[in-house]
Computed example of a mutant assay.
Amino acid sequence: MKLSEYKSLNEEEQYQILWGEGILIDACLEGSVKKLLYAIDNFYVELWCHIMTNKILWKLSFKQGKLLEKYLSKYPVHFDADL
């Protein structure tokens, strides 16, 4: 599935795809918000959920950019020049 196809779906269909096909990549806490990053095919979905109620506060789908970079920066990559 392409990102544009996902975005063209209604909210309920998007959540069905997210729960059925999404792979949880990372999670972090910021105050009372739990941020979850899922991968679906060649794009990502970030969910913000309230910690106490588990209510979804926000959802955004994307391929790259600052939203993805904040997760990637948590896992520095080291290259071995001898390989």
Rank of each mutant, 00 (worst) to 15 (best):
E5Q: 12
Y6K: 02
Y6L: 01
K7Q: 11
S8F: 03
L9F: 13
L9R: 14
L9A: 04
N10L: 08
E12R: 13
E12Q: 14
E13C: 07
Q14K: 15
Q16S: 10
I17L: 14
L18H: 05
W19M: 09
G20V: 06
G20R: 04
E21G: 01
E21A: 11
G22R: 00
G22M: 03
I23A: 10
I23L: 11
L24F: 04
I25Y: 01
A27M: 12
A27E: 15
C28I: 12
L29N: 08
E30F: 13
E30C: 06
E30G: 04
G31A: 06
G31I: 08
S32W: 14
L37G: 05
L37N: 04
Y38D: 00
I40S: 00
I40H: 04
I40F: 05
D41F: 09
D41N: 14
N42H: 13
N42V: 04
F43A: 01
F43T: 00
F43P: 00
Y44L: 00
V45H: 01
V45A: 03
V45F: 03
E46S: 07
L47N: 03
L47E: 10
I51K: 14
I51G: 00
I51N: 09
M52H: 11
N54A: 12
N54I: 05
N54W: 07
K55G: 02
L57F: 05
L57Y: 05
L57K: 09
W58V: 03
K59S: 15
L60W: 08
L60K: 15
L60R: 15
L60T: 11
F62E: 02
F62V: 00
K63D: 05
K63W: 03
Q64N: 10
G65F: 06
K66D: 15
L67N: 09
L67S: 08
L67F: 07
L68C: 04
K70G: 01
K70P: 01
K70Q: 13
K70Y: 05
L72I: 11
L72H: 07
S73L: 13
S73A: 11
S73P: 00
S73W: 06
Y75R: 12
P76E: 06
P76L: 10
H78G: 03
H78Q: 11
D80Y: 10
D80L: 11
A81M: 10
D82T: 15
L83H: 08
